Measured scan of single mutants.
Amino acid sequence: RKEMTAACTPRRRIINLTSVLSLQEEINEQGHEVLREMLHNHSFVGCVNPQWALAQHQTKLYLLNTTKLSEELFYQILIYDFANFGVLRLSEPAPLFDLAMLALDSPESGWTEEDGPKEGLAEYIVEFLKKKAEMLADYFSLEIDEEGNLIGLPLLIDNYVPPLEGLPIFILRLATEVNWDEEKECFESLSKECAMFYSIRKQYISEESTLSGQQSEVPGSIPNSWKWTVEHIVYKALRSHILPPKHFTEDGNILQLANLPDLYKVFERC
C-alpha cells in the first residue's frame, strides 16, 4: 500500500510523520478485503446518474454509490500519497476573496446577518489561508500566491479535474471546517474536505460537464463527458487505489441488486 500512486510524480518523498502513518493504519484496520476484491475485478455496466452506477462482479449485479466511493478513493490517495502530488495549474489565478464571496452568497454556506458582513468574512478567509499557504503547498500541492490567488490544485489521478463549480464552497470550508490546531486532526479533516471537493457530486455535474483533463479519443470531437470520466478514470482507479471500509457493506453505498443465475431462471419461465 505504501507504493500506491494514482498520479505520476517525478520522485517520491518518504513521509514518516506519526500522524500520517496513524491515518494510514486506520484505513488498513477499517478495510474490507472482500469489497476490495469485488472492486478490483468488477465489470463496469454503466452510470445511472452522477451519484449511482451499476457494476457486475462474477454472477452478481451491484449498485454502487459513485459519490461515496470516489470520496473515499480521493481521501485514501491523499493519505497514502501525502506530500507526493503533482499540481493542476489553473488556467488563470482565482482570487480567494472572490471565491469566498461566491460561497457566502450560496445558501449552502449557511451565512446569516449575525455572522457579520460577507466582505469582512471573505477578507478573513483570504488572510487565514495565506498564512497556511506554505503547508498547503508542501503537503497538498494546493498553491496560493502572495496576492491571495489560488493558482494550483493537487493532481490526485492523472487526467482528472475536480468539478470546479464546487471550488468556492471548498475554499470556505478549508477556513471553517478544518481542525487547524492538532496535526493528525488537521491532516485528516483537510484531506476529507479535499476528497469531498474532488468527489463526483450530482449538484455540480450536468450532462455537459467534463471532468477530464483530456479530449476524447476521436479527433475533432467534444470533450469527454462526465460519464466517460466516471467509467474510464474514476472506476479504473477504484480497481487498484481503494481499500473500501467495512461500513460500506452496511450503509447502502454498495448494494447487491441481483444474482444473475437467479434472473436467468426467471427469464426461462417467461
Rank of each mutant, 00 (worst) to 15 (best):
R1G: 08
K2D: 15
K2E: 13
R11L: 14
R12W: 14
R13H: 13
I14Q: 09
I14W: 14
T18C: 12
S22W: 14
S22D: 11
L23V: 13
L23P: 15
L23K: 11
E26R: 03
E26M: 04
E29L: 10
Q30F: 12
G31K: 10
H32F: 13
H32V: 08
E33H: 13
V34T: 08
E37M: 12
M38F: 14
N41Q: 06
N41Y: 07
G46K: 01
V48M: 08
Q51H: 13
Q51T: 07
A55G: 06
Q56H: 07
Q58V: 11
K60H: 10
K60L: 11
K60D: 13
Y62I: 15
L63H: 11
L63K: 03
N65W: 00
T67C: 13
E72Y: 10
Y75G: 11
A83L: 02
A83Q: 03
N84M: 13
G86P: 14
G86V: 13
V87A: 07
E92G: 08
A94Y: 08
L96S: 00
L96I: 08
A100R: 00
M101V: 13
M101E: 05
A103P: 00
L104T: 01
P107G: 03
T112C: 11
T112Q: 10
T112H: 11
E119S: 09
E123A: 10
E123F: 15
Y124A: 02
I125D: 01
E127L: 13
K130L: 14
K132T: 01
K132I: 01
E134R: 02
M135I: 03
L136N: 01
F140I: 06
D145A: 02
E147W: 12
N149Q: 07
G152E: 12
L155W: 09
L155P: 01
L156N: 00
D158C: 07
N159M: 06
N159F: 12
Y160S: 00
G166C: 09
P168F: 01
I169G: 14
R173T: 08
L174M: 10
V178L: 01
N179C: 06
D181T: 05
K184N: 06
K184D: 03
E188H: 09
L190D: 00
L190A: 02
S191I: 02
C194P: 00
F197N: 00
Y198H: 09
S199R: 05
S206M: 08
T210L: 07
S212L: 13
G213N: 06
Q214M: 07
Q214W: 12
Q215M: 09
E217Q: 10
E217K: 06
E217L: 08
E217W: 11
E217Y: 13
V218Q: 07
S221N: 08
S221G: 10
P223I: 05
T229E: 09
V230C: 04
V230A: 08
E231V: 12
E231M: 13
Y235A: 10
Y235V: 13
Y235Q: 06
K236A: 13
R239W: 14
P245H: 13
P245Y: 15
K246N: 11
H247C: 05
G252A: 08
G252N: 06
G252F: 04
L255Q: 02
L255W: 15
L255R: 04
Q256G: 09
N259F: 11
Y264T: 11
Y264N: 03
F267C: 06
E268I: 13
E268L: 13
E268M: 12
E268H: 13
R269T: 07
R269F: 15
C270K: 14
C270H: 10
C270S: 15
